[in-house]
Design a protein around this nucleic acid. Structure first.
Lengths: 340, 340
DNA sequence: ATGAAAGCGCTAACAA
DNA sequence: TTGTTAGCGCTTTCAT
């Protein structure tokens, strides 16, 4: 069967014997329409299976597209998936949908995605900026009224709203928890690149906790990895040091998976662990994995709320909203430290 | 500062002193343009910060929007997040983006989302159908050439391509594994509603395994839950039966989390477990969680590939593609069964 | 209560 | 190599 042309407003109008404008009035409950005409129009709409073309409507009306453009590093990462759900939650009642793309933390892909979103005239742009990406080219759009929100990390080259977790304080809490249980040699397994905002902030929190306890910072206890496998290897390397750590701090959820898996594989039950960001099954481990939990859905909802406020005319200064983290103690931070 | 009108093609043309069509030619690398004109146009584009309006372009060209409409029950579920990534992977090189929405397994919301997608003239529609949703209203669109793919579950009322896991065989493998290790009273914790396709298929696999081993089917060993907390409660109830199960089979990833967490909390190390769908940290548990792993990204890529083939004119009969599952033995299925 | 004409921003199909 | 005209499907404006 050949691909039929989809019916248009004009087709419906012709079917009923009225003008296109009348059909439009019925569908948008615009001007006055007689009950009978309305009936006939609705019948024809149903008969032809007409569905108004939103692109055409949007274009004529001149307003933005009713979508939220969202760029995340990886759609498959549970953290960003939860963030996306939070955003969707926050904008659904305003009738906005999510237009999404993964940047893989590549500035070029991020830029291509944002360009595409802009070309589509999204109502809101929400971006988890990649390391090395600049956003000065977005300035004109922001000035023109497009709400732009940076998420998880602040953006470079453009003063605008950002939503971040309390990375530094949260990491400090987590590491302090380890110190309180007698640990003085604490490894840090962070993601890459090292310039990544969250990585730096969390490392700063780690160092602040050490400083607070008068423990010297030992660079050799800081390891890096790109992914879970890398974190497993990093964990293994740290534990093979001449003077190895008795505890490990995971810089994010993926690093946490690597650390925990490697410790399980090597049956190292003597190493304490605290992770930044919660992971599923954390409470089912033995002992339970102590984490500095983020609230990704709240981050998403907060981004949505901020952007919607801008859409509604809020012209106040750009703010950075910090979503608090919460230390959830489950036991893994209390594993025996070095003998006193 | 007032919201400035965004520059249009005509603005650029005026700036340079050429016609709109010429600008269009430069931007789309369409017809021939003199090097000098091209330079000037590009300069003006940069100067004005012009970005072509994709909606207008699409409309004029008459083609569909370069988006994939995707409806999933829950964006935050790692399984669907991974599926989404697979789809994105599969369509990116064709220049398609993801337009997403969560249905919460509510047929009305699913319908609202698909209607919105249709109104937006998506190039492809991919849906995880809710229980009770019907899709006969999509028939005309499919006939008109819109590729429609059902994912994870087949759709009702419309013969079209579907991508599913080998639910029945996979579940049978998992339960057979438990039986091979001496278990005869095996509980099944499935999600709701009970009419859900995946739930029914996996339960059928469970029953097939029992039948194969001449173990009578005991309805009291089948429990249901909506979410992780529900699965925890269901696990607890099963274990309190007069003649309790010595092993449990989880109907999906969320049920698995509930079972594992509840067993850890009640320190029941004597209960064997196999889960349908892999979860992170499964290998770090003690013993590792044996699972029937799905391949969500492959499901997504497969859906993308199927839809793209349809877009390219494939008019063959609707097929159902079954993505194989794989039993990953990690130990939890081998916990001691009843004494012989 | 309804319709005709114009135009949103862009490109196809022609000319020149 | 470039411009002109028309029109995608819809809504606005102004008539009737």
């Amino acid at each position: 069967m050949a691909a039929n042309r989809r019916p248009t407003l004009a087709d419906v109008a012709r079917e009923v014997g009225v003008s296109a404008k009348t059909v439009s009035r019925v569908l948008n409950e615009d001007g006055p329409v007689s009950a009978q005409t309305r009936e006939q129009v609705l019948a024809a709409v149903a008969k032809l299976g007409f569905q108004p073309n939103l692109m055409a409507r949007n274009m004529r009306v001149g307003g933005p597209d009713t979508t939220v453009g969202l760029v995340v590093p990886d759609l498959g990462n549970p953290f960003f998936a939860a963030v996306a759900r939070g955003i969707e939650d926050g904008v659904r009642e305003r009738g906005l949908m999510l237009l999404m793309g993964s940047s893989a933390d590549d500035p070029d892909r991020e830029r291509a995605l944002t360009a595409e979103f802009l070309a589509r005239r999204v109502s809101i742009l929400i971006v988890v900026p990649s390391v090395g990406s600049h956003h000065s080219h977005l300035k004109a759009h922001r000035t023109a009224g497009l709400p732009i929100v940076f998420l998880d990390r602040p953006g470079a080259g453009l003063p605008t709203d950002s939503i971040v977790s309390s990375n530094r304080a949260g990491a400090q809490d987590g590491v302090t928890h380890l110190i309180a249980h007698g640990h003085r040699r604490i490894g840090f397994v962070g993601d890459l690149p090292v310039k990544l905002y969250t990585r730096r902030e969390r490392l700063a929190g780690y160092r602040a906790a050490l400083r607070e306890a008068d423990i010297p910072y030992d660079r050799s206890l800081v390891a890096d990895a790109h992914d879970q496998q890398g974190a497993e290897a990093a964990t293994s390397r740290l534990l093979e040091l001449a003077d190895p750590p008795t505890a490990l701090f995971a810089g994010n959820n993926i690093m946490a998976l690597g650390i925990v898996v490697e410790l399980a594989r090597s049956k190292r039950k003597d190493v304490a662990v605290v992770a930044f960001d919660d992971v599923s099954l954390a409470e089912a481990l033995e002992p339970g994995l102590t984490v500095v939990a983020q609230d990704p859905e709240e981050i998403g909802r907060s981004a949505a709320a901020t952007a919607l406020a801008r859409l509604d005319g809020d012209r106040s200064r750009a703010r950075t909203i910090t979503v608090p983290t919460r230390l959830i103690v489950r036991g893994s931070g209390e594993r025996p430290g070095p003998r006193p």
